[in-house]
Nucleic acid binder design. Sequence first.
DNA 1: ACGGTAGGGTGTACGCCGTACACCTGTCAA
DNA 2: TTGACAGGTGTACGGCGTACACCCTACCGT
Lengths: 222, 222
Amino acid sequence: MEKRTPLSRERVLRAAVALADDAGIESLSMRKLAQDLGVVPMALYKHVANKDELLDGMVDVVVGEIDPPVTGTDWKAAVRQRILAARSALQRHSWAAQVIESRTTPTPAVLAYLNSMIGLFREGGLSLDLTHHVMHAMGSRILGFSQELFAAAPAAEPPPAAMAAQLASAFPYVAELATAAAHTADSVVGGGCDDQFEFEFALDLLLEGVERRHRHGWISAQ
Amino acid sequence: MEKRTPLSRERVLRAAVALADDAGIESLSMRKLAQDLGVVPMALYKHVANKDELLDGMVDVVVGEIDPPVTGTDWKAAVRQRILAARSALQRHSWAAQVIESRTTPTPAVLAYLNSMIGLFREGGLSLDLTHHVMHAMGSRILGFSQELFAAAPAAEPPPAAMAAQLASAFPYVAELATAAAHTADSVVGGGCDDQFEFEFALDLLLEGVERRHRHGWISAQ
DNA sequence: ACGGTAGGGTGTACGCCGTACACCTGTCAA
DNA sequence: TTGACAGGTGTACGGCGTACACCCTACCGT
């Protein structure tokens, strides 16, 4: 009987991330996690206070994977690049966006990230006022994800033809848009949109508006 | 012993909405709901298939409260107004945004809403292409809520002064922004931002960008 | 008048969850 | 040697969603 390497907060968090990565966040429970670590459930509580703190720790792991900001460019390019870096970190952990949304208080690691993001705007010369509202306007996009309406199951199979026709006549605009999107996608069947394109489209829309306001010396009417 | 009015899907949904409204979504359970209705938990399952379907139904109730679109204005004003109508419906039910985010498939009522929103853009003359990307870009803002990063507990009391100073030096930009926001708010203590202002700021940023692209005949490079 | 059927409320039970609390055991400092 | 303490264990509690068998009542065609 070999002796296991002892638990540690570090090991617990990494195991939790791994479990969520390949079994999905919905099947991450203290009991399953303990089992993965070859340990009894209550052992975890010597390293994390409770499940909420575990989730906070997992977010910190993901945020820690975000590449640092680039230097030597204008603020807009720097912000754009950092946000895309965050996005790519989040995409390595499909559960992350959902978990981040569920947290109510930022951890220090997240605060540090936000701090550096605010810094990019401020050092780019944006007013405190404008920076403030921009941070709100970007919302979760700052962390690299957009809250799509109905993220839709990954492989939402199309409804049977009969019902599809009925839906199309009830919601003609939706149908028009959906079929157009399906045609331009790589495969006609995988009625998919190009997530990356949509994300950058929205991001650029926002950054462009911010830049215009900045150039025009925008001041909130508050 | 008087006889109760019998259950119905309608009555179940309304009771669920009422319960979530004043006890919070986290304390909405099939058991509590049944208790409110003076009935045994399993009775509910004769009217809703399971808890997910219950939540879908609750979303439909909220969506049903959104005022219809105004007519006789340009698309931008119509969209703006409808979105603000959605926002005011959502605000009457503080749990709604969170629940909507958690759904994976739109209900017919939501599809109808999205359909009419797409219609506003299309009838305003926007191309199918642009409309598509715009719908993505607006994301959940179309339904009247923005996913703020860390919605923060309603009354997040400030940290003790000692720690506040430490935080401020570790995250100077966050601190600068937070104190400025606290000062301009109605009350200095309630470190609040004007949610409505932030929402409209972001909404206008987006709509303005959309209008510019529309006027310039923007076509996706896809 | 009567048996059958079906809709809707009931009771019990299962397997999951997070975690409180008492306990044990090995390590190391004094 | 002792004793404190960090860390793993076992048991148990109260919650959850919901499967399944049951029963009661109202209504139907005969």
